[in-house]
Design a protein around this nucleic acid. Structure first.
Lengths: 153, 153
DNA sequence: GGCTAGTCTTGACTCATTCAAGAAAATGCG
DNA sequence: CGCATTTTCTTGAATGAGTCAAGACTAGCC
């Protein structure tokens, strides 16, 4: 029923949950919404965002939701070394990430190499590889320009 | 002076430290030795290994050494999502890693793609990329065979 | 409307890693 | 060689993202 505001971007998060065989709960819808609105955010930011509409959600509910949504593939988690977990809603396309060493900002990278890039490594040590994760390390525009923003993705 | 045992593999860790402009201390030599002997080990294993020769080192000394050695490029740290930090001494060649999802085992992967693989992404969002890190996720031979070893890298 | 399994709340807890202050040791120099 | 300076190590406490557990709640189904 929830009337969608005038904005064009209409995701039916309830349907997405149902299709994934997950119960539709307000925390989950709110988490999905938050991550869609602000990709690459960490758990704390997501908790804050969720609490704008649901002031009483527990952090545990958000953690649970994030795990459930990640498990069914509606979200994807990113954990660059030295930073806390981040989440994004862009799933299914094998895209990669650029991470800023100094402020932690993350940008999406559509990998130039067409197919799965370095997956040509499978058999090597008896490992059964099913995913290649690529992280591009560097500095974002702001940080390489000298000004070091205070870690606001 | 320390007489090298009969074994061929003779790394002069003291010289490596001096060349890196680091003071030569017993904890640092022991950490370097341990990581060379058992690559991809986590901090706790390294602490245990170091204490075999230096029973009284503090964990903080090992943490400090690992950071110092990593900072000057004598070691490299790996932190796959969901696992604690690991260290290896193979540095300088841009090789990658296969990580077992279930036991955490890590294997080195010499990337099939000759040059820097997906570095073709530089300019994209104003990021100045200087390193591409590739993690191949999957299952090691043991884990894909059914037996799940108890996380012993 | 009532059942039941799956979720959420609450609050305690883990544990890798970091912080801080003083003691100890490494390098350089007289 | 012995001392001064500076870095590193020891000790012990603290941090904080994330997890665990027990009971209350509720979404989905009859």
């Amino acid at each position: 029923m929830r009337e969608t505001s005038g904005v064009a971007e209409t995701y039916d998060f309830e349907a997405m949950l149902r299709e994934a065989a997950l119960r539709v709960t307000r925390p989950r819808v709110a988490v999905l919404t938050a991550v869609h609105r602000m990709p690459h955010s960490d758990t704390e930011s997501i908790i804050r965002a969720v609490r704008e509409s649901l002031p009483t959600v527990s952090h545990q509910a958000v953690y649970d939701s994030l795990h459930a949504l990640t498990a069914v593939g509606l979200l994807r988690s990113i954990q660059p070394s030295g930073f806390v977990a981040r989440y994004e809603s862009r799933v299914g396309d094998n895209h990669h990430h650029a991470v800023c060493r100094s402020c932690g900002r993350i940008a999406d990278i559509d990998c130039a190499v067409g197919a799965a890039p370095c997956l040509v490594a499978s058999g090597d040590h008896g490992f059964l590889i099913d995913e290649a994760e690529v992280v591009h390390w560097g500095r974002c525009a702001d940080c390489s320009a000298g000004n070091t923003p205070s870690a606001t993705p």
